[in-house]
Design a protein around this nucleic acid. Structure first.
Lengths: 341, 341
DNA sequence: GCGCCGAACGATGACGGTAATGTGAAGGCC
DNA sequence: GGCCTTCACATTACCGTCATCGTTCGGCGC
């Protein structure tokens, strides 16, 4: 049927050449009004849809931008995607969102998918701590922007939030409330965000004259609710139990909260909790969650804009300088950290 | 640079023809061992990556499946996407996830994007109540499977959950608990899910000898937390205030819960709440939420499998019969509906 | 020694669209 | 009238891949 109407079918139906049809689509003002109308009517009649792959093949690159995030189940990344998509669409590009599920293997798989697709560029939050994936990426000359992570070299842009400051915000708040022993439910030790937030936490402790032994780290395999429940259970087993816990993200915090509820521990009186990301559900939690808010939508949009700037600089004459944008987090205090003591 | 190494660059480097390189990639056993090794080494040395667009152009169709959902901010759809992606990947396909944001206009935009990409097929939860988008879709002969919605004709497959049964489960539970006036925070009136869940609710009332006037409908513009907060505020203004509320999804329910908390209304004692979808955050809510669980991952996977079956039937000789799969929901009772009365 | 066969690889023509180049007619200018 | 320009459209050479069809050549049987 209309399975494969090509530009030449349209040309035949309208009694013109393929070039003219192409012109009607891409440069309408170069075609006489009457001819244009005839072509447009043929397009409509035959239900012609141009083939993106053919355009891409000729253009040498696609009109798609890749976005590779750690976990689409995390509303934080959904917000990042939203921001990126908006910025990309403003430039007439699409976004292909993929989920590395925090696995270096899946990450590599998606990156080679992006390479095959000849995407314009990629926004990514690396899951591979070794940096090997990024290396092969650089080798293929595919522009990319790091999201939620600071670029080490000067070969790429990055947009991130100051995680050291964020960790300090959270722990300073807890120290101010009188807590002296604080657990840190940290997530996979390989992640930079996890490390930086700990650094910030230690800084805040040091400010108050407290040593690093006041921070009890509870690493987890993943950054999700189930891992949080698990960490909560481990927390309960600790000798000299901390009176407060700082979680590397809100999903972990919600998991910890569930574990506390199940064990009959009262939040915030028996245990204060601070999360990270301030996802929408943090405010709706069993005990509304104090959290460190990150400008996720802005981060996604900014990253996409940087990428666009870089790819356009390649064609145009204007140059592009790699930048490291660092945004500031903000503490949102709710009930989970306001004990009566 | 390695900007555009094509198959012919590899061929030149390896001292063979392009056809041989193609054979090394696609039918390795037809190439002599030594030649193959030489070609593979050249591929590796040059960093060759085959171009998906060129393959697509030649094959006439892509290796991508489209998925168009109502709201990626809703964990329910994230689960659907997860299921679909797993099934697609098992078949060697990728999934392009797009978010219609419950707008017919955006839906149309994405559908034409899918058409240009020549996707294998599309899984979609229609946002356009008029069905016009689907019509143009059918016209272009693009196979599609409806997700979370029952096919009306016999021209397509669908995978859905019995929303009438789900609505009945929720309201029957509330009626059994003694509630006689129940609000229904329903979402956009155009959505089938919304209508079916109301039908189920009315059925459950009728079973108990209660008339339709016992159900007070509060429509909202969207199916998200903000709309739920808004509906909650309106609920508080109702004369003869209901003692229970059934929400068309969990996001609305969480919004209602926030509004109640802000107004000092106790849940479930002053107002019982039942949500829908049983998203992960329902269990972690301020008051853990009673909800109607839907097998979202299964639904996504099943839909993808049906689509694959259909597209493979087009090429192979085996036929494909359109099916309407209807899954059963399940009530998960938590504290939000267990008043002391 | 001749003919034949199969293995291994080379040459080639689509696929659909784009843009540079080519063509012919109309019209302006000296 | 000859020349040049402009407009409106046609022609055509790619882009990278892959399957088909040739071609070459060594080996085998008779």
């Amino acid at each position: 049927m209309s399975q494969s109407v090509g530009i030449k079918d349209v040309a035949r139906a309208a009694g013109v050449s393929v070039g003219t049809v192409s012109n009607v689509i891409n440069r309408p003002d170069t075609v006489a009004t009457e001819t244009r109308a005839r072509v447009l009517s043929a397009i409509d009649r035959l239900g012609y849809v141009r083939s993106e792959s053919a355009r891409q093949l000729r253009a040498g690159r696609s009109r798609i931008m890749g976005l590779l995030v750690l976990d689409m189940g995390n509303p934080f990344f959904v917000d990042v995607a939203r921001g990126a998509e908006r910025a990309a669409r403003d430039a007439g590009l699409g976004v292909m969102v993929c989920n590395s599920a925090q696995s270096a293997g899946e990450e590599a798989e998606y990156l080679s998918l992006f390479a095959e697709q000849r995407v314009r560029g990629v926004l990514l939050t690396p899951a591979d701590a070794t940096g090997r994936n990024i290396e092969t990426f650089r080798r293929h000359n595919i522009p990319f922007v790091l999201v939620d992570r600071v670029a080490e070299g000067t070969t790429e842009c990055s947009v991130s939030v100051d995680d050291v400051a964020g960790g300090a915000l959270a722990v300073r708040h807890l120290v101010d409330a009188g807590h002296r022993t604080i657990a840190y439910v940290s997530g996979p030790p390989g992640l930079n965000q996890v490390r930086d937030r700990r650094t910030g936490a230690l800084n805040a402790l040091a400010e108050a004259g407290l040593g690093p032994d006041c921070l009890r780290e509870l690493p987890t395999e993943r950054l999700d609710v189930a891992a949080g429940r698990d960490a909560g259970a481990r927390l309960l087993g600790l000798a000299d139990r901390p009176t407060a816990v700082f979680c590397a993200n809100d999903l972990l915090a919600l998991g910890v909260l569930q574990a506390m509820y199940a064990a009959g521990i009262t939040v915030p009186d028996d245990l204060a909790i601070v999360g990270y990301d301030d996802i929408e559900f943090a405010a709706a939690a069993a005990v509304p969650l104090t959290s460190v808010r990150q400008p996720a939508v802005t981060m996604g949009a900014l990253a996409a804009e940087l990428l666009l700037e870089e790819t356009e600089a390649e064609t145009a004459t204007k140059r592009h300088e790699h930048r490291r944008v660092v945004l500031q987090p903000e503490l949102v205090v709710r009930r989970s950290s306001l004990s009566a003591r």
